[in-house]
Write a protein that binds this DNA or RNA. Structure first.
Lengths: 410, 410
DNA sequence: GATTTTTTTCTCGACAGTCGAGAAATTTAG
DNA sequence: CTAAATTTCTCGACTGTCGAGAAAAAAATC
């Protein structure tokens, strides 16, 4: 359904555009903003004075003039205009980061996760405590926190910040919105971890290729298997999604997965699955909860020495991944695949299986093998994805509420 | 990447909005347009007088006033403002339809397809002849044909009207754009057939549910297997895609498919595959090109009488479809599935397999079985999809070129 | 030191678009 | 024939963008 457009909408969009350019490039002068947005200088004046009045951006201090002519007046976002808390939930810890509106890290700490299994309720309490702690350490007033951006592995509701299924809590849903609402008026968003990796890689790619960038998939290998897809939307920036890839069906009635279903991709390609298959444990054995990476390193070493069984375990994992990726490609357009996560260290052992698994499908035989690249530093990408996403959400919110609020009150 | 907005863009969008409302509801009065677009009466006046000047819409004849008060002046699109040719390519025939801008069918005929295998070049020539023939029969001048909308089974390039792979021509690509350009200046679009079915069902659904409609998948069963997905976009209407579902990998190293790959879904669920498995022919046999439906009806009758082998053939087909659908659902959100095509007549035999195949995946066990409905009249839906899609493309083109062109020349 | 050049920012008038209110048009009821 | 009802049309107000040129301010030049 199409909806009506109006002149105010135009101003809103262009304001967001200015903010996003300011974010990407840092402090910019009038002229530069005009150049990179395509808007005329007069419009920039109008928008920036409005944003300045609303205390969202500020003129930077006069700096030593670098050329001749009237010196530039740089505009930048006011870093203290608002703050963002990033919460990264991983299998063994929860990391809290406080970030200002300029994207600068102010404070960070991690807390170990208690591994007690029936801990969904207790976990929520821990997160609430962690949030209060990082706020307390920084002496920032709670109203200044505009957004809490949370990420986890697992399946996330697409519209509300509800963790629908996760490797740790299973089907014990966690609704972060209602859990945090009593204490916080900040907006709460929740994203799948690998989705953020894909978003970050997509943003980087777009920086380089510009309009040529089409789409990209990020595959995260570790205890569990995650996938994120970024596609360039028609007009409205990027479109991202995080399918339930790790628990896509690989083979009917196959190996038992942590989730209780048989035949998931993860039941062949997750760390525990590789371990299980390397030790020739029956595939219907209930999988180990945690696998020390050192353990897997040993198996990899044996496989690299030429031992058949461990090499076969990695190959089977690769096949499951390759088949799964080929199925993904059958449902989407052709796109490059970036592999991240701790599992990348075994890529030499997985590669042949992945390629063979991909090659078994019609789409790959027809269109050829997709480009596969290995990308390290998953943690950095996750954080980068948080920032990209969260700050642009803040931009929109500020323009929607902030400017109008100021105007109404002034 | 965000792009700048301007006031002219606002007018363009709102003009398209008015046209699309006019299309959906037929002739409408000033007030009604205002109500259903949300635009003010003054704006409607401005837009409609512009469109009327550009000869895109017209005031309808005064009609007997139904209530008191000033009688309404109905506005409607000028049917002769432009024409559309719909070309539906199916396995045994090509159907040509001439439609006016109001969506009314003016002329239609079918031509049998020559089944000669090396016929990609000859086929293109036949289509060109067919197009000229329908034009000739109607005495409409060629410039009045604004759009040629073509559909086929198979895989279609997402940006250009190129048939990348089809059941009939295999990898012999057909570029309709360059094939028709010399003779036609009309725009040419090409869509997968099942995509159009999905688009039509999505439009119907949106009529009923309004903003509640989220997404829907259409599964077409026949000689080949097709899938179309419709999703409600953020703002810009609907988003549709036609994955290569029939040739998604069902089982590595499985049965031989028509496409030459092993293990495609179609190699289990296509008509020829059911036949092959019912006659217990080895799965690596090169599949039959065409299967008379009567033949399959016989097998279905035996299966319904309780014969094991034919029943098993349908069950296997259902399993392949169910597994494939579950994989699709792992990559998308939960959505209802509409089954169409000649294969629906065997749905009683397929159903159990489909449900079992779906149930083997984590996502279905967690979210529950998706709603499955059987929808007959695939042919009508295909044509309806053509109209929906083509006429809204024409709306946009007209507003983009037509109005501006008229304004410049006037 | 005064003047010119260069560069950037700011301002003004023109133009496009939407909206609300009320005038104009036109038919039916009484 | 008049009043009421209903629809369409028009006008002024408001918001937004744009191009051009004025104003500002520093470096270069004489």
């Amino acid at each position: 359904m199409l909806t009506k457009s109006s002149t105010e909408l135009v101003r809103q969009r262009n304001s967001v555009l200015v903010l996003s350019v300011l974010r990407r490039h840092g402090a910019l002068a009038h002229t530069e903003i005009s150049d990179s947005t395509g808007l005329s200088s007069a419009t920039i004046s109008a928008i920036t004075t409005e944003l300045e009045k609303a205390q969202i951006i500020e003129k930077s201090e006069q700096q030593p003039a670098s050329g001749r002519g009237r010196p530039r007046v740089l505009l930048r976002q006011r870093r203290d205009c608002g703050y963002l808390i990033v919460v990264i939930i991983s299998s063994d810890a929860v990391q809290y980061s406080l970030v200002d509106y300029g994207g600068k890290l102010i404070d960070r700490f991690s807390e170990e996760r208690s591994h007690d299994p029936a801990g969904a309720v207790r976990f929520v309490a821990a997160v609430r405590a962690g949030l209060l702690r990082i706020l307390d350490r920084s002496k920032i007033s709670q109203e200044k926190v505009l957004l809490i951006s949370i990420s986890s592995k697992g399946l996330v509701n697409s519209t509300e910040p509800v963790l629908v299924w996760s490797p740790i809590f299973g089907s014990d849903q966690i609704d972060f919105e209602s859990a945090l609402r009593p204490e916080w008026q900040a907006k709460v968003i929740l994203d799948n971890e690998t989705l953020l990796v894909a978003a970050a890689l997509g943003a980087r790619e777009e920086m380089v290729k510009g309009a040529d960038f089409r789409s990209l998939a990020a595959l995260s290998l570790g205890h569990s298997v995650g996938l994120g897809i970024v596609r360039r939307g028609n007009q409205t920036g990027q479109e991202i999604s995080a399918p339930n890839f790790g628990h896509m069906l690989h083979m009917a009635n196959g190996g038992l997965c942590r989730c209780g279903t048989r035949g998931c991709i993860e039941a062949y390609a997750g760390f525990y699955a590789i371990l299980r298959s390397a030790f020739e444990v029956p595939l219907d054995t209930i999988p180990a909860k945690f696998v020390p990476v050192a353990e897997l390193d040993k198996i990899a070493a044996k496989a690299r020495q030429g031992h058949r069984v461990p090499a076969f375990a990695f190959r089977q994992a690769g096949l499951a991944l390759g088949n799964g990726l080929s199925r993904m490609l059958s449902l989407t357009e052709r796109m490059p695949i970036a592999i991240t996560g701790p599992g990348t260290r075994y890529y030499d052992l997985l590669r042949q299986g992945i390629e063979e698994g991909l090659g078994q499908s019609h789409i790959v035989r027809m269109e050829g093998m997709p480009e596969i690249r290995v990308v390290a530093d998953e943690q950095i990408l996750v954080f980068e994805g948080h920032l990209n996403r969260a700050l642009s959400v803040i931009d929109e919110d500020i323009v929607l509420s902030g400017v109008q609020g100021i105007q109404a009150s002034g």
